[in-house]
Structure formats: C-alpha cells, structure tokens
Amino acid sequence: MQVSQRTRTAALAASAGLLIAGFGLGAWQSLSVDGRLPRLALSYNWWMKELAAKGDLERVIEQRRIAAAIDHNSSVPALQGLAAALQQAGRSEEAIEAFERVLALIPNSVDTLNNYAAALSGLGRHSAAIAHLERALELEPDSELLRENLEVLVRHRRELAHTRLAQLRAALEESPGSVPIANELAWILATHPDADIRQPDEAIGFAMTATQTGGDRDASVLDTLACSYAAVGRFAEALATGRAALALAIRGNDADLTAELRSHVARFERGLPVIDSG
C-alpha cells in the first residue's frame, strides 16, 4: 500500500496530537484534583479507599461492580470488595449474591464464609448463616471469632423461635380455626434445627388441626403434616401425606414448591426427617 508523504505526516500528527493531548489532560486532571502527578500504583485500590473515605458509597459500589466485571486477574478481591461495599450500604440481597460468586471461586475462604453468614443473618436467614459458620469452623477450628459468632447466632435463633412460638400460640387461642397459624406452629415444632425447640408430637396435633380446618387442599399444609410424621419416625404416613402434597403442588404449577416437596419426599423415602435450614 502506497501512502503519500502528506498523508503519513497528517496521520502521524493526528496520533501524536491525540496522545499528547491525552497525556496533558491526564496530568492536568491529576494535578487539579490530587495536587500531584499520578502516583505509581499497582492497582485501583487506593482509588476505592479515597472514594470510601469521602463517604461516596454508591460510587464505590459502581466502581467495584465494574472492577468485578473487568478485572479477571483479581476477580476474587474485586468481588470481595463489591460484596463488602454492598453489605456496608445495607444492600444485603446483592451482597449475598456477590459473596456467593466469591465462594464459587474460593469455597474454603473462612473470611468470606464469615462475612456471608453475617449478610445472611442480616436478612433473617439464620439457619443458613449458622450452616456457613459451622463450615468455616470446620476449616478453622481454633478461631475464637467464628465460635463467638456461631454462639451468638444460635442463641439468637433460639430466642427468635421461642418468641415466635409464644406469639403463634397466643394468636391461635384467639383464632382457633386459623390454618396459617396452626401450620406455622406445626412447621416450627416439627422442623426447627434446634432439638430443644422441636416438639414433634405437638406438631402433629397442630398440623392435623390445620388440615381438618380446610388445609387439606393446601400442599404446604399437607407437607407440614408429612414433616411432622417424619419427625416422630412415622415415615410410611409421612411418605403417603408427602406424596399427596406433591401431587397438589404439581397440579398447582408451583415449580419452587414442587421442587421443595420432591426433596422432602426423597428424604422420607430414605427414612430421614426434614430440618428447616432456611
């Protein structure tokens, strides 16, 4: 390809001009904002710290999100930074998503498991939070911090359950025929992760009440009864009731509920009760 001298000069001048203008603007920007020429830095972390120090959390999150999308070289720290910023901003659902992406990359990160548990707990998902803290403790059994966090969460979950049970019992006295109240009472008493909360015999009673007062056409209510049977080891009845609940869920086209009930039936088939890990 033959290019005239004039074209060559023009193209070179354009490239050089753009570059020099870019350098000049860059220097001017840095001098005017930071009062100095750009620092020599290996990463953008200093920039995040400065944004955070200014309290511009939304901008931190936006920049962290971009870093997580681009920076494949440091995808773990980028995602950890994003999760932390989201949690700090109180955007727990998004923080949980970010923590899950970190854990997909480094499943045995104790710090991430601990922070993830905190985010889950913040959303009231105490059992899931406890499960992740327990996993973290398996990885780092000597950690006092993890042990304390776990104890606090377990205690908190137990207190919440006691409070909720008291509220439900009082409510049921006022409305003895309430299916949702009887169902929730039975569910907690049958499936709570803490053994001292579970009262399976009582759970069967409340679940029967719920089914006999109209709940027998509700897949969730039947499932509670099935779980209550399983909690006392009556797996044949659990299986029959669980299958009836599953059939109702399938007829109702509820995909999430169907999947959950399928997993319950599978447990009954193996002679296992259901524990609420939510």
Partner: peptide, 10 residues
Amino acid sequence: NLLPYAYVFA
C-alpha cells in the same frame, strides 16, 4: 499513568 486520567477527566 497519565492516559487513564484523561478518561477520568472525560
């Protein structure tokens, strides 16, 4: 070091 700041300027 300088060129990224030109984009920040923009």
